[in-house]
């Protein structure tokens, strides 16, 4: 005789919303919108709205599939233990069906309503996040967020492709900016929640290589990130407003990263928390500056 798993009541709709990681989605939607607004050609407002909706739904689908696959890891980490699956408020099959359905819907809608180029990049970004980052890299290598960071870098490319139907140098630089921003951002976080990652057995850099190596890597990744952030101006892709804003914002990022690089673990981990918080503001403001620069031009 076999024992059946206890049946859960149907999940609350708010738990499905939580599966989509709405807070992560904010940055994804914003960078996608900025990629679209920075493009030289505009599209009808309703199609622009649809493209942004598809980017949000695609990101939500990737987040849901990530939580479906990582329910066991989430259960042992304080930061994620209250999510719907580890907290036992939803069965795994519902999360899988929701994630796959949402992914398919977002890609099909993008392809039919906007264009195939944007739909193709959206597909790659979802598959990259789920298969390359979540399934393949996250549990295997401390380089997980370096390579996996590409998944979060796609939205400006998708936004640009939605408006123009093609890819150009500026959105590729925006992709590179988010890609190179991801390691310092996540490693600053990993430094102050290292014990959480260690408990879950996730090979984040501080767990595998130690605190000093992580601090050095934060400094090393900040250099190419700074170059890529400022590059659109000398390359003639943006105006002086973006140039001045990117230099000022990146200088602050560099100063905060330098403090973390030369620092040591302290009880409050203030420099690390400051870098983590500023890195989020940095990305919002630098993308905003790009859009303002376009309007000024």
């Amino acid at each position: 005789m076999t024992t059946a798993a206890p049946l859960l009541p149907p999940a609350d709709w708010r738990d499905f919303l939580a599966l989509t990681k709405p807070r992560v989605m904010t940055l994804v939607v914003f960078t996608g919108l900025c990629g679209m607004l920075a493009a030289p050609r505009g599209i009808a407002p309703v199609l622009a709205f649809t493209a942004i909706l598809c980017i949000a739904l695609g990101a939500g689908a990737a987040g849901a599939l990530n939580q479906w696959y990582e329910a066991d890891l989430d259960a042992v980490m304080k930061r994620t233990a209250k999510r719907p699956l580890p907290a036992g408020r939803m069965d795994r099959q519902s999360a899988l069906h929701f994630g796959v359905g949402l992914a398919a819907f977002s890609v099909i809608l993008m392809g039919l309503a906007v264009n195939m180029a944007a739909a193709a990049i959206l597909t790659v970004s979802i598959l990259f996040y789920v298969l390359i980052y979540t399934v393949w890299l996250k549990r295997r290598t401390p380089q997980n967020i370096v390579i996996g960071g590409a998944a979060g870098a796609f939205p400006p490319l998708i936004g640009w492709a939605a408006a123009t139907g093609e890819v150009a140098v500026l959105p590729v630089l925006l992709f590179a900016l988010v890609f190179l921003w991801t390691p310092p951002h996540f490693w600053a976080l990993a430094l102050f929640i290292e014990s959480d990652y260690a408990k879950a057995g996730i090979p984040m850099l501080p767990v595998v290589a130690g605190e000093r190596a992580t601090r050095r890597q934060i400094g090393l990744y900040t250099i190419p990130m700074a170059l890529v952030a400022v590059a659109p101006w000398p390359l003639g892709l943006t105006g002086a407003f973006y140039g001045a804003a990117s230099i000022a914002l990146t200088a602050i990022f560099g100063a905060l990263a330098a403090r973390v690089t030369i620092g040591r673990n302290t009880p409050g981990m203030k420099p690390e928390k400051r870098l983590f918080a500023y890195s989020i503001i940095y990305l919002f403001v630098i993308f905003g500056a790009l859009v303002v620069d376009r309007w000024l031009a």
Binding site: P9, P10, A11, D12, W13, A44, V46, L47, T50, L53
Partner: peptide, 27 residues
């Protein structure tokens, strides 16, 4: 919960119908 999910699904379907209409006009 079933009732709440049914209401949310109905609202989303209605929003999708409206969006499809406006997409068609834009196209």
């Amino acid at each position: 919960r079933q009732k709440a999910r049914a209401i949310v699904t109905a609202v989303l379907l209605l929003a999708f119908v409206v969006l499809t209409f406006f997409i068609t006009i834009a196209k």
